[in-house]
Computed example of a mutant assay.
Amino acid sequence: MILTGPEIEKQVAAGRIRIEPFDPSRLSPNSYDFLLGDEICWYVDEVLDCRVENKVRYATIPEHGTVLEPGRIYLAGTAERMGSEHYVPIIRARSSIARLGLFIHVTADLIDIGSINNWTLQLHAVQPVRVYPGMRIGQVTFWSVEGEIELYRGKYQHSRRPMPSMIHRDFSDEELTTQPVG
């Protein structure tokens, strides 16, 4: 079941949801608006390889904003450190952002229970769009769970900046020695 805005505020006060910093004015009927952080990165190479660590370039988003171009994925962090060991967060773009053709996640909207981070957003623009640090970019909802809870302890835990893919760590040494097809 989804938590209402007032319930999110109660759970933050009780320490069962972490949103740091927390601003009650950003509560909605059943979500909390989060902000775009000031750091962004993108992959250097045109072709990305799942078996190797892909190089990224980091930059600070200036106060006058930066333009995101189509055909590229940008990784940016949330300004807030968020998460819960009791509820499952799900992120979405604010409707005003979606109406500009900006995706803030590329299928990765479900945040694991116990993942407490400055979350990495996967920004993809349908057409060029300028974004600014500190702008309201997305919303998070919190969902109650049933069953035994196993907390996230994965490779992105405790991240404070945009994190590129670490899928290359999922391949075994044996898999890395095989030749790719094509």
Rank of each mutant, 00 (worst) to 15 (best):
V181H: 14
P24M: 05
A98P: 03
I90P: 01
I73G: 08
Y58L: 03
A59E: 11
I111N: 02
S159W: 06
I90K: 12
C41K: 03
L36I: 00
H86G: 09
G77W: 03
P133T: 06
V88E: 15
F171M: 05
V56H: 01
T178L: 15
G77A: 08
D33K: 09
D23T: 05
D173C: 07
D112V: 04
V106G: 02
S159L: 03
Q127H: 15
I113L: 05
P180R: 12
T178R: 14
R92P: 05
E7L: 10
E175V: 07
R92F: 15
I8L: 07
G134V: 12
V129H: 07
P70E: 08
R94K: 15
P133N: 09
E53F: 06
S144T: 14
V106M: 11
G15R: 04
Y58D: 01
N54L: 05
A79P: 00
F103T: 13
Q127M: 13
I2P: 00
E9Y: 05
Q179D: 14
N117M: 01
F142I: 13
L68H: 02
G147W: 10
A59D: 07
N54M: 04
L48C: 04
I111K: 04
V126N: 10
S144W: 14
L100I: 14
S31R: 01
P89W: 14
Q157Y: 02
S115F: 10
P162F: 05
E7A: 11
G37L: 03
S165Q: 06
L27T: 01
D173V: 05
E69K: 11
V106R: 04
M163T: 15
N118G: 02
R161T: 09
I40S: 03
I91Q: 12
E39A: 07
S96D: 09
K155H: 04
D109M: 13
Y58Q: 02
S115A: 12
V181K: 13
I104A: 01
E69G: 06
A98W: 13
H105R: 10
G37E: 05
Q122L: 13
V67Y: 09
S115V: 05
I91N: 10
E69H: 10
E53D: 09
G134Y: 13
R51I: 02
F22E: 00
E20P: 00
Y87I: 06
K10Q: 15
Y74M: 02
P162S: 11
G147R: 11
V52P: 03
K55V: 08
R72W: 11
R26G: 01
E39W: 04
I73F: 12
T60H: 08
R18L: 12
V44E: 14
R57A: 11
Y32N: 00
P62H: 09
R26C: 06
E150F: 12
V52N: 07
E148H: 12
E150W: 10
D33R: 09
V12T: 01
G15D: 05
S95G: 11
G15C: 06
S172E: 07
E63T: 13
I167Q: 08
E53L: 08
V131F: 10
A79I: 08
I167G: 00
Y32V: 01
M1E: 08
Y43W: 11
V56I: 11
S95M: 11
D49M: 09
P70Q: 10
Q157C: 04
S159I: 08
